[in-house]
């Protein structure tokens, strides 16, 4: 009992001295470097996480920009195609209008030509009919009227022929 409760200055002294040695040696060589390393690592991890977050944010921004660009490009393409269609349609209409106008004028020309040819042919036929009639009449009558008489006769006949 005596030994348990007595005041032991020696043990107190050695406790202080030993603790001081532990504190000085390990404080400088172990505890401080370890605490600093742990703090640095925490800082490093925090920074890394923040950087990762910032990088992800940046990537998302870039991706959004790309999406926007693609959407814009698609829109532009659509516009170009639409404008092209409209232009093509207009050109087509122009060509058709042109062609039909040209065709119309050609037809008219041809009609004019045809009616001209027809008149010419009719006139020729008329002349030939006169001559033939004279020839036939000469043959029939056996006597030739003078040329003027003949012509007058035939013309009269023809006029009547044309009227009838």
């Amino acid at each position: 009992m005596e030994n348990l409760m007595n005041f032991d200055t020696g043990l107190m002294f050695w406790t202080w001295l030993t603790f001081l040695i532990v504190l000085v040696v390990l404080g400088a060589k172990a505890w401080k470097p370890m605490i600093e390393a742990l703090e640095k690592r925490e800082e490093f991890i925090r920074e890394s996480l923040e950087e990762a977050k910032a990088a992800r944010h940046e990537a998302e921004k870039v991706a959004a920009e790309y999406d926007e660009m693609i959407a814009k490009a698609r829109h532009e393409v659509q516009e170009i195609v639409a404008t092209g269609k409209v232009t093509a349609e207009r050109i087509k209409e122009d060509i058709l209008k042109d062609a039909s106008a040209k065709a119309g004028s050609l037809l008219k020309q041809a009609e004019t030509q045809i009616s001209l040819e027809k008149e010419k042919a009719i006139a020729e036929i008329k002349t030939q009919i006169v001559e033939l009639s004279i020839f036939a009449a000469e043959k029939i009558i056996g006597k030739s009227l003078n040329q003027d008489d003949n012509k007058k006769l035939v013309n009269d006949a023809l006029q009547q022929f044309g009227k009838s």
């Binding site: 030993t18 603790f19 040695i21 532990v22 040696v25 390990l26 060589k29 172990a30 505890w31 470097p33 370890m34 600093e36 390393a37 640095k40 690592r41 490093f44």
Partner: peptide, 21 residues
């Protein structure tokens, strides 16, 4: 104390050598 100093010095050696051990 001797045991603690020996063990702690050994365990903490890489913390004295490197910044981010």
């Amino acid at each position: 104390a001797a045991l603690l100093i020996t063990v702690a010095l050994k365990a903490s050696s890489r913390y004295r050598k490197s910044e981010l051990p």
